[in-house]
């Protein structure tokens, strides 16, 4: 096994994890909401992109835009349905509701797109980069670059703009925010739509790496959760580092220990964290 190849694989995997986790980082870390349908939204985005490309003949970039628009609309609908629970900050009910909606999306996805595995083929995913003995594709480079750009943009948005302060204010105390003339419901709606748009973009970027199935999505949620928790809930930079770190760990674990048990290994890290640093998990 080539060590530098494993580092490349780690970066490739890790940037994918971080990219998929971006929406959740904001949703949970900044606005303190949960969305257990995250994995199914990822699945749906991948299929919408695939459908737009193979059935409607759209080019890759246009398919990405379509996926973002479709998912944003879906996210807005979901959030409108859940407004009362969100304003009451009823996380337990929100969690079950999104779990149920995720199941609806899974069933609906299978009805619309069928049960067969499909490949989301992007030109970049098929072009290998020639870098001596190292093996990766231009799609991997794109994911890595986009992940860094997106995280930087989101960090600047949250910490350096008035809108960022507004989101953090609503997360801290939605009622008080109203007295500042802030429409809290609208802010929650915006954040949730962002989460859906971010997962759509992530899926369109990351999903070309492997066959897509309507039953996928569970591993994505677990990896996302590990990334967000490992990074320290609410820390945008932390999530990026955690994503890359987790990718590195999984790449080496898969190469040198057991490739079939990578999710289990990630879970092991989570348990270790729970025992070693349980305070890091306190959200409020």
């Amino acid at each position: 096994m080539n060590l530098s190849q494993q580092i490349v694989n780690g970066l490739v995997l890790g940037s994918g994890y971080a990219c998929i986790a971006l929406g959740w980082t904001i949703l949970l870390g900044v606005a303190r909401l949960v969305n257990f349908a995250h994995g199914q939204l990822y699945m749906l985005s991948a299929f919408v992109t695939w459908y737009a490309m193979t059935r409607a003949g759209a080019p890759y970039w246009a398919a990405i835009v379509i996926a973002i628009v479709v998912l944003s609309l879906l996210g807005a609908l979901m959030q409108l349905a859940m407004t009362r629970l969100v304003i009451e900050q009823n996380l337990t009910s929100l969690m079950i509701v999104t779990l149920g909606l995720g199941y609806v999306i899974q069933g609906g996805g299978a009805l619309i797109f069928g049960g067969n595995p499909q490949t989301l083929s992007s030109v970049l995913a098929r072009t290998k980069v020639d870098a001596g003995a190292l093996w990766f594709t231009w799609q991997d480079v794109l994911v890595l670059a986009m992940t860094f750009v997106l995280y930087a943009a989101v960090w600047l948005f949250v910490n350096r703009t008035r809108f960022g302060s507004v989101i953090r204010a609503v997360a801290e105390d939605p009622r008080l925010a109203q007295l500042f003339g802030i429409n809290a419901k609208l802010v929650y709606l915006g954040v949730f739509v962002f989460e859906c748009a971010a997962v759509a973009l992530a899926a369109a970027l990351v999903a070309p790496r492997a066959p897509i199935l309507t039953s996928m999505g569970f591993n994505e949620v677990i990896m996302t959760f590990v990334v967000v928790v490992l990074g320290g809930i609410g820390s945008i930079g932390g999530a990026l580092l955690a994503g890359l770190g987790l990718g590195m760990f999984i790449a080496f674990f898969g190469a040198f220990v057991a490739p079939a048990y990578t999710t289990a290994a990630a879970f092991g890290m989570l348990l270790l964290l729970l025992v070693v640093r349980p305070v890091g998990l306190a959200t409020k």
Partner: peptide, 11 residues
């Protein structure tokens, strides 16, 4: 300006 908590502590 309400009674009690009336500013954002984390901002």
């Amino acid at each position: 300006v309400p009674e009690g908590k009336n500013i954002f502590a984390e901002l």
